[in-house]
């Protein structure tokens, strides 16, 4: 049984002028138990929307999202979601932010704090326990968000450009760290990114989504050996070959999306 299955999902949004906008169209995607799946695609193609369908925050207009064999009907707390936008609680200290999940789930305060300290150490934020989010850098906040989600040891892990706010070095360190953490509990992962190198370095499978309405254009299996060291893997010849293939598929969509926005703005002006 697959961990995550999207069966021909279509998602339509109501627009301001009373019409509908189709963000996803007939998208099908399967992620096996313990599989790390990266999703790439041009901006606005519906990657975030896909994740909200899997998490149950939104329901599909047609088609079905299935998690562990159960159709998704609402939010399931065994799913972890690292949002694209800042979603840490600004009124909670860093420690309280990370401890929030266990506390919500009924863990005792002292125990939750202990867990949270441990996770803060893992994301390299020891010593920042008492800060408020606005006193952190964007990258640090992102790491708080990561710790906040991972502390719950989700069976399904959805990550929406989690490293986009990080500098290149931290990003490489965090990627390696993420792979180690993932290896410990082996959740099924959908990892959205714009960075193709990152996608290949991390994933078992890279999925290319078409320019909106989004649907799967192509899937690529990444047969690079694990454990991987993210900083070095890009020199592997297989990596280079895969990069060429996937970029080929992705480029058309990016061009398409770009042309569309520029023509739109030309029409508008």
């Amino acid at each position: 049984m697959a961990a995550i299955e999207l069966r021909n999902v279509t998602k339509k949004f109501a627009t301001a002028d009373g019409g509908t906008y189709t963000a996803l169209k007939d998208l099908s995607l399967t992620v096996e138990e313990g599989q790390f799946c990266a999703v790439v695609g041009p901006t606005g193609c519906g990657k975030s929307t896909t994740l909200t369908l899997v998490s149950g925050l939104e329901l599909a207009s047609s088609g079905e999202a299935v998690v562990h064999g159960q159709p998704v009907r609402g939010v399931d707390t065994s799913t972890g979601f690292v949002f694209q936008q800042d979603a840490v609680f600004p009124w909670k200290s860093v420690l309280d932010n990370v401890a929030a999940g266990p506390l919500f789930r009924g863990t005792k305060r002292s125990e939750a704090n202990g867990l949270a300290r441990d996770w803060l150490r893992r994301v390299g934020l020891s010593g920042f326990e008492d800060r408020y989010p606005h006193q952190l850098s964007g990258g640090m906040r992102k790491r708080v968000a990561l710790a906040q989600t991972l502390i719950n040891q989700p069976r399904i892990l959805l990550m929406d450009e989690p490293f986009s706010a990080l500098d290149v070095q931290t990003r490489a360190i965090m990627s390696t760290e993420l792979l180690q953490l993932w290896d410990q509990t082996k959740p099924a992962v959908i990892f959205v990114t714009h960075d193709l190198e990152e996608a290949i370095a991390l994933a078992d499978k890279v999925v290319v989504i078409t320019a909106g309405p989004g649907t799967v254009k192509a899937e690529f299996d990444i047969n690079l050996p694990r454990p991987r060291v993210v900083q070095e893997i890009r020199f592997d010849p297989t990596f280079t070959r895969l990069y060429g293939q996937i970029w080929e598929a992705l480029r058309d969509e990016v061009d398409e999306a770009y042309t569309r926005t520029t023509t739109l703005s030309r029409v508008a002006s």
């Binding site: 998490s55 925050l57 939010v75 707390t77 799913t79 972890g80 979601f81 949002f83 936008q85 800042d86 979603a87 840490v88 609680f89 929030a100 999940g101 919500f104 789930r105 906040q148 989600t149 719950n152």
Partner: peptide, 20 residues
Amino acid sequence: NLLANARLLGASPWRVTREV
């Protein structure tokens, strides 16, 4: 986003009200 985050982190509706 904060509401969604709290729910996914496991907060009951009452705790979402109180803490978010």
